[in-house]
Deep mutational scan, measured.
Amino acid sequence: MTEYKLVVVGAGGVGKSALTIQLIQNHFVDEYDPTIEDSYRKQVVIDGETCLLDILDTAGQEEYSAMRDQYMRTGEGFLCVFAINNTKSFEDIHHYREQIKRVKDSEDVPMVLVGNKCDLPSRTVDTKQAQDLARSYGIPFIETSAKTRQGVDDAFYTLVREIRKHKEKMSKDGKKKKKKSKTKCVIM
């Protein structure tokens, strides 16, 4: 069974824990209790493949930012979460993405942009803004509501699919490099 290491990042209060708990335990946590770091595991079937999701729910508070490099190193894919009623959390996505790329030393890291709290009427981040940002990053965008469960499975499952595509691409690139290195030079 394939294991996928997913990391949920975003500013404090955007609903990272609520999304994760909704996926794992099928219930909505409405009281806000700032996370330092929590880890969850769940076995699911995605596109006919049974897999184990190892999900790291991270601290959004700035005082825990020193811990970010460590979990970013171990993560295979990242859910970059903002709240649709919090423009600052949307603007912060850029910083999370840049930090992930720096730590992973790669421009090509599996990510999904997630606009959470889409059940709320007080939207300050337009869907088109988020779609445009995701398009500019070359990553999928999904709106979710941890409260109603809308888009929750889709967000995590899409990230797994992005990781699969990335692994497939990397193995193809690896095979191309191996083929090239088999060419021999004969000096007579």
Results as ranks from 00 to 15, higher is better:
3 E>K: 13
4 Y>D: 04
4 Y>Q: 11
5 K>Q: 10
5 K>C: 03
6 L>A: 14
7 V>Q: 12
8 V>Q: 03
8 V>M: 05
8 V>N: 02
9 V>A: 06
10 G>R: 01
10 G>D: 02
12 G>H: 12
13 G>M: 12
14 V>S: 09
15 G>P: 01
17 S>T: 02
17 S>A: 00
17 S>D: 00
18 A>H: 02
19 L>S: 14
21 I>C: 12
21 I>R: 05
22 Q>S: 06
23 L>N: 15
23 L>T: 15
23 L>M: 14
24 I>Q: 03
24 I>F: 04
24 I>Y: 01
25 Q>S: 09
26 N>S: 11
27 H>A: 10
28 F>L: 01
28 F>D: 00
29 V>C: 11
29 V>R: 06
30 D>W: 10
31 E>S: 15
31 E>P: 11
32 Y>N: 02
33 D>M: 01
33 D>R: 01
34 P>Q: 02
34 P>E: 03
34 P>L: 01
35 T>V: 00
36 I>W: 01
37 E>S: 01
37 E>K: 02
38 D>T: 00
40 Y>V: 00
41 R>V: 04
43 Q>E: 14
43 Q>T: 10
44 V>F: 15
44 V>E: 09
45 V>A: 12
45 V>Q: 15
47 D>E: 11
47 D>Q: 10
47 D>P: 06
48 G>Q: 11
48 G>N: 10
48 G>K: 10
49 E>I: 04
50 T>R: 11
51 C>I: 12
51 C>K: 10
51 C>A: 12
52 L>V: 14
52 L>P: 07
53 L>D: 01
53 L>W: 07
53 L>R: 02
57 D>Y: 00
59 A>I: 00
59 A>P: 01
60 G>M: 00
60 G>F: 00
60 G>Q: 00
61 Q>F: 03
61 Q>K: 13
61 Q>W: 02
61 Q>L: 09
62 E>A: 05
62 E>Q: 07
62 E>Y: 04
62 E>M: 04
63 E>N: 06
65 S>F: 09
66 A>S: 10
66 A>P: 04
67 M>R: 06
67 M>D: 02
68 R>S: 10
68 R>L: 03
70 Q>S: 15
71 Y>A: 15
73 R>P: 07
75 G>P: 04
76 E>M: 10
76 E>S: 07
77 G>Y: 05
77 G>H: 01
77 G>K: 02
79 L>P: 01
79 L>Q: 00
80 C>R: 01
80 C>L: 12
80 C>E: 02
80 C>V: 07
81 V>M: 09
81 V>S: 10
82 F>G: 15
84 I>E: 15
86 N>S: 05
86 N>I: 02
86 N>W: 02
87 T>N: 06
88 K>I: 09
90 F>Y: 08
91 E>G: 03
92 D>A: 11
96 Y>L: 13
97 R>A: 06
97 R>C: 15
97 R>G: 10
98 E>Y: 02
98 E>G: 04
99 Q>F: 15
102 R>Y: 07
103 V>E: 14
104 K>E: 05
105 D>E: 06
105 D>V: 03
105 D>G: 13
106 S>A: 13
106 S>R: 14
109 V>Y: 04
109 V>W: 12
109 V>D: 02
110 P>G: 03
110 P>E: 02
111 M>A: 03
111 M>Y: 02
111 M>K: 01
111 M>W: 04
112 V>R: 01
113 L>C: 07
114 V>H: 02
114 V>A: 04
116 N>P: 01
116 N>G: 06
117 K>H: 13
117 K>L: 14
118 C>M: 12
119 D>T: 14
119 D>E: 08
121 P>I: 08
121 P>R: 08
122 S>W: 07
123 R>F: 07
124 T>R: 08
126 D>L: 08
127 T>F: 06
128 K>S: 07
128 K>M: 07
130 A>F: 13
131 Q>R: 09
131 Q>N: 10
134 A>V: 03
137 Y>I: 08
138 G>W: 04
138 G>V: 06
138 G>S: 05
139 I>L: 15
142 I>H: 14
145 S>L: 03
149 R>E: 08
150 Q>V: 08
151 G>D: 08
151 G>T: 09
152 V>W: 13
152 V>Y: 11
153 D>T: 07
153 D>S: 08
154 D>A: 06
154 D>P: 07
155 A>E: 05
155 A>W: 11
156 F>M: 06
156 F>R: 00
157 Y>Q: 09
157 Y>G: 07
159 L>P: 01
159 L>T: 08
160 V>A: 06
162 E>T: 12
163 I>F: 03
165 K>S: 05
165 K>D: 03
165 K>R: 10
166 H>C: 08
168 E>L: 07
169 K>Y: 15
170 M>V: 12
170 M>G: 07
172 K>G: 04
173 D>Y: 11
174 G>T: 15
175 K>R: 03
176 K>V: 14
177 K>W: 09
177 K>S: 05
178 K>P: 13
180 K>D: 09
180 K>V: 15
180 K>R: 09
182 K>C: 03
182 K>G: 05
183 T>F: 02
185 C>S: 15
186 V>Q: 14
186 V>N: 09
186 V>L: 09
186 V>C: 07
187 I>A: 14
